[in-house]
């Protein structure tokens, strides 16, 4: 029985640690639901998209491509390009997922988002590796909030005050910036981080439509720089 009480406390801890990210996701999700309804999505379509794609920027970009008349294939590719970075996150969740039954692996990877990086970071600061159920608890709550806030936005669709007026659109940006000091491991991170952000900057300033690829290419290049260098 000790194992199961540990499971529950990990679940709850994960859910608690995700709260700031859940708040940011709620504002973003409401905005997405609103835009989706205004672009002709039915309630069920916004709901299904949030539950299956679980990535705000990917959903917005796909929706944008579709309403711009780019067609299904272009919309899927553009959205997928933005979600490609999650591949890097599930890769770094290896330790928590390994030796789990297949259905737990399938659920665990589906719950992976940028916020999982924050959870793994928080666990590390406590001096422990993020466990499967810790990541599950945080991810599941985030998915619930995400789907719920999308639905609220889709249902109300009108009459919601513009979130930008209250600076709420900045919540998600602030979360990622606030993660940086914790992720910083000292001088050895300088070259990889400059590489990653520099490549993104060059991409955005030259070919702004390929943000998803810029993220993937930038992050991987930074990691390569970190891998190739030897000094500690």
């Amino acid at each position: 029985m000790r194992a199961s009480s540990e499971t529950i406390s990990d679940l709850l801890l994960g859910a608690r640690d995700i709260l700031p990210m859940a708040f940011a996701a709620a504002t973003y999700g409401t905005a997405f639901g609103l835009v989706a309804t205004q672009s002709g999505f039915s309630f069920l379509q916004s709901f299904t998209m949030s539950a299956m794609v679980f990535g705000g920027s990917a959903q917005l970009v796909a929706l944008d491509q579709l309403t711009a008349g780019a067609g299904v294939a272009a919309a899927v590719v553009a959205g997928a390009a933005l979600n490609l970075r999650i591949l890097l996150i599930t890769a770094s969740m290896r330790a928590a997922l390994i030796q789990r039954p297949w259905w737990q692996i399938a659920t665990g990877v589906h719950l992976a988002t940028d916020a999982s990086v924050a959870l793994m970071q928080t666990a590390k600061q406590r001096g422990a590796l993020a466990s499967y159920w810790y990541l599950f608890g945080g991810g599941a709550l985030l998915l619930l909030v995400w789907v719920f806030s999308t639905s609220v936005g889709a249902v109300l669709s009108r009459g919601i005050p513009d979130p930008a007026r209250f600076g709420l659109d900045f919540a998600i940006v602030a979360v990622f910036i606030a993660l940086l000091p914790g992720l910083w491991r000292g001088k050895r991170d300088l070259a990889p981080w400059l590489t990653a952000s520099g490549i993104v900057a060059v991409f955005v300033l030259t070919i702004p439509d390929f943000a998803g690829w810029a993220l993937l290419f930038g992050a991987v290049s930074g990691a390569v720089v970190a891998g190739v260098r030897h000094e500690e």
Binding site: S92, D114, L180, L183, S197, V200, A219, G222, A226
Partner: peptide, 12 residues
């Protein structure tokens, strides 16, 4: 180094 690089790229 990957998580840090990814978040740095996102912030950029």
């Amino acid at each position: 180094a990957l998580p840090g690089c990814l978040i740095a790229a996102l912030v950029a």
